[in-house]
């Protein structure tokens, strides 16, 4: 029954995954651009963010159309409402990546403060959280969603480490303050992205259980 409707609902969730993979690339590439001082890649990310923003609007429109024409109920309604929230979080993660790309351009060809190790690590962990978060969304897996929320702590710890390290470098050599501060911003963008992913996971719990829950608030 309601074959078209079921197809539309499935397609909508597929679109969220497509948007998720756009955001995933954006995170990884922005940190690559920062690490390898690849200014061309950084510019591409800034341009690419427009596509992510557009994707969000397209998905929102699709959600509104389904609500208006199909009167979704119960779990279907929860999926659509959750998607309306998830795409906002994804779009904001895209903005954080764009922020990192802009930092890469700002730093430009200035000499590096230090080789980047923990920031790329933060990016990898964030991307893993994103993948698993969206996996839990498709599978309606509350256990996995909560696990991903717990993983946020690891990203927070890396952020602390980056912050401490850069603070020491700045204290030792005030000439690095400008560059080091920008790196702290970049790390902060990743830390915020991971927090956004925990929001997505909270929506997964909402889809599965119908309950709105704040799962382990982030340290930041």
């Amino acid at each position: 029954m309601r074959k078209d409707y079921e197809r539309s609902l499935k397609a909508l969730q597929d679109e969220v995954l497509v948007m998720g993979s756009m955001v995933e690339k954006s995170i990884l590439w922005s940190v690559d651009a920062l690490k390898n001082r690849d200014l061309e890649l950084a510019r591409q990310i800034i341009i690419g963010d427009e596509a992510i923003n557009q994707k969000r609007f397209d998905i929102e429109e699709e959600c509104i159309e389904l609500i208006a024409t199909q009167q979704p109920m119960a779990v279907d309604l929860r999926i659509i409402i959750a998607i309306l929230n998830i795409v906002v979080d994804l779009e904001r993660i895209g903005d954080h990546s764009e922020g990192i790309a802009k930092i890469a351009i700002m730093i430009g060809n200035e000499p590096p403060v230090k080789p980047l190790i923990d920031i790329p690590r933060m990016a990898e962990r964030t991307v893993l959280m994103l993948r698993e978060g969206l996996d839990s969304f498709i599978k309606r897996d509350v256990t996995l969603a909560k696990q991903v929320c717990d993983d946020d702590e690891g990203v927070d710890e890396l952020y602390d480490q980056v912050f401490r390290e850069l603070l020491l470098i700045m204290a030792e050599n005030p000439k690095t303050i400008g560059r080091a501060t920008r790196l702290i911003w970049a790390a902060h963008n990743l830390e915020r992205s991971a927090d956004r992913i925990t929001n997505i996971c909270e929506r997964v719990v909402f889809i599965a259980t119908g309950r709105m829950e704040d799962i382990g608030a982030s340290k930041y």
Binding site: R2, P72, M73, A74, L77, R78, R211
Partner: peptide
């Protein structure tokens, strides 16, 4: 009932699956 029914049958009915 319309956002989070307890029973699977209710869920199926109000989402139009039977």
């Amino acid at each position: 009932i319309f956002t989070n029914p307890n029973n699977k049958k209710t869920e199926d009915y109000i989402t139009g699956r039977f």
